[in-house]
Design a protein around this nucleic acid. Structure first.
Lengths: 137, 137
DNA sequence: TCGGAATCCGTAGTAAACTCCGTGTGTTAG
DNA sequence: CTAACACACGGAGTTTACTACGGATTCCGA
């Protein structure tokens, strides 16, 4: 059930040092320890890290995620006005991001759809984009 | 029709220095200049900056946005395999982000929905969250 | 029990994305 | 024409988010 920090990092797919960093940043609660001081984690911590990764991927800062993560694990029964207000604000932010994302998606989909679907031969205009993509993507 | 860098920055809602920074980073093309060397921009540049802001908001890096922006303004007729391939990869990334975002949205919506909707009196459990939110949101 | 792998911790270094500064020149209202 | 303000530029400084280092334990399998 319990796992070491190395194990946790591997399962969440992040650097071990990052786990300690997140702990300092209060994104992770202080974990249990062995007698010798080694950290002990549970599956809930893996989930929490995955949530953090998701939130990061969609553009939230660690500061914002600290708040989101707290909401996420809060017992809903214990909610109050302030938390609700915060949740509503964050929800509005997310809907906004969703719209922006959908607009970018439309743009990309449109680009792809506009492709002649034929004559996919040699390209002069956009040659070199491949190299760019290799480095930048 | 043409505007100065200060005007552009104001319209796009970003810092003037950031405009110059983006130019260095090749996110903006080198603009026309006045006789004295001052930059001159058009509405298309405002649009481009707004696109960059959106892409940033949903978690893309400047490197990635450089590529996206190029796709965005490319004449679809000039497309080729490489560009298509790139567009498809980016589209997949975006669909992935969309899913993560929707999952976060569900989580928040769930939190809000679970609210008792009554007894929104004084809160003991989550007091202090307001202050956190004020600083962090 | 013993030795190599894993962890501990604080601190330093890195990369990305700005943001500010100072000095000097361009622009424009009055 | 000239003051006040905007802009040009290079370079330094800042913030965010890691990532690496290194010497000192701790853990654990043979």
């Amino acid at each position: 059930m319990a796992m070491t920090v190395g194990e946790l990092a591997k399962r969440a797919g992040i650097n071990l040092e990052t786990v300690r960093f997140y702990e300092k940043q209060k994104l992770l609660p202080e974990p249990e320890r062995t007698g010798g001081g080694h950290r002990l984690y549970t599956d809930a911590d893996v989930e929490r890290l995955r949530f953090i990764q998701s939130a990061k991927a969609v553009g939230f800062t660690l500061k914002e995620i600290r708040v989101l993560a707290r909401l996420r694990e809060e017992d809903a029964g214990a909610s109050c006005e302030d938390a609700m207000e915060l949740a509503r604000r964050k929800l509005a932010e997310i809907e906004d991001k969703l719209k922006q994302m959908q607009s970018i998606r439309r743009m990309l989909a449109g680009f792809i759809a506009a492709c002649p679907e034929k004559d996919l031969g040699h390209c002069q205009v956009m040659q070199g984009l491949e190299k760019v993509a290799a480095k930048d993507t």
